[in-house]
């Protein structure tokens, strides 16, 4: 069988991420259910949800404009674009020089920006509330992300994702250096904030006092809602891939052979399962924070990132 080229691998890895994302979220939900002594829906429930939503009719508010109808596509496109840039299976791929970690962060901000605008479009109070809170959390997590990128780039000498992965693989001792561990902690908190997981936001609730992300997308239905939900799940998978492949990169294919790619797939699945279990346990243990306690949590992640950089300076 001929060896796959870089472009085919890139497209394949994006398709893989799209296919796995609903399953990952289904796994997290199932684990949480089991931990809470419930049976829970089967792991493949999100796939069934997507199929249902794509077949349903869309109801659009009479106050909404073209932006409401365009936003799901923009959000989905930007998240899929990020999927092309994140090292899910192999490095370095041809798209590595197109975008680095900063591009990834700001592309995700592009999606959040349009989603927040779409929350304000129908003129409902829920949407406004969700938009306001979502932009607050996004703005406050920016410094942490920037500093975490700084810490990783300090070690690797570049902000390009392929470089960071390659550097950690070349120097395994760096992976347990306190700088990396602290940066991991900071990025884990940011993952919770950016994806709307507990303790920042509860993805399972629809009470106005407790929702952020769900409040913004309350007006959406049918295929629009399917696109938005799918991109939110894809975002979870991409953040997990970043956490896994930047900090524990072994298994990521450096040569494009079928054997290496198969091994990369296996290790990716293993890392996703481990992170899913960790997230499920964590979410079951903590309660949701009041909105005005969330900045304190983000301040903690900021301090972790500051420590990560200071320690990285030390160990250089």
């Amino acid at each position: 069988m001929p060896l796959p080229t870089g472009y085919t691998v890139a497209i394949a890895q994006t398709a893989l991420a799209l296919l796995l994302a609903p399953g990952l979220v289904g796994l997290i939900r199932w684990l949480k259910a089991r931990l809470q002594n419930r049976r829970g829906a089967p792991v493949w429930q999100p796939y069934l949800e997507l199929r249902k939503l794509f077949a349903k009719e869309v109801v659009v508010s009479s106050n909404a404009s073209w932006l409401f109808r365009a936003a799901p596509f923009v959000v989905f496109a930007s998240t899929v674009a990020v999927a092309f840039l994140v090292p899910v299976l192999a490095v370095p791929l041809p798209f590595d020089s197109v975008g680095d970690l900063l591009v990834v962060v700001y592309l995700l901000l592009l999606g959040t920006f349009f989603l927040a605008l779409a929350g304000l479009d129908p003129g409902s109070a829920f949407g406004g509330m969700g938009s306001s809170r979502e932009m607050t959390v996004a703005a406050l997590s920016e410094p942490t992300v920037a500093l975490a990128i700084f810490a990783l780039a300090l070690g690797a000498g570049s902000t390009n994702l392929g470089q960071i992965v390659a550097r950690t693989m070349a120097d395994p001792a760096a992976a347990v250096s306190p700088g990396y561990l602290l940066a991991f902690g900071a990025l884990f908190v940011v993952t919770l904030a950016e994806n709307g997981r507990l303790p920042v936001d509860n993805p399972a609730t629809h009470l106005e006092l407790t929702m952020i992300h769900e409040a913004m997308i309350l007006e959406y239905s049918g295929r629009y809602l399917a696109l938005i939900e799918w991109s939110a799940w894809l975002k979870v998978l991409l953040f997990f891939s970043l956490l896994g492949n930047l900090f524990v990169p072994w298994g990521v294919a450096t040569v494009l052979t079928w054997a290496a790619l198969g091994w990369a797939l296996a290790t990716l699945l293993a890392k996703l399962v481990v992170l899913a279990v960790a997230l499920a346990v964590f979410e079951t243990r903590v309660a949701k924070l009041r909105l005005f306690r969330v900045p304190e949590l983000l301040a903690v992640s900021f301090v972790l990132a500051v420590l990560a950089i200071t320690v990285s300076f030390l160990v250089r």
Partner: peptide
């Protein structure tokens, strides 16, 4: 890093501000 953090915070808050500016003015 302090300058990096301040720049990142300013740019995040700018995004929040323009969601407000565009959203309240033009949407709804």
């Amino acid at each position: 890093p302090v300058a990096v953090a301040m720049l990142a915070l300013a740019s995040g808050l700018a995004a929040a501000c323009f969601v407000k500016a565009f959203g309240i003015t033009f949407l709804g």
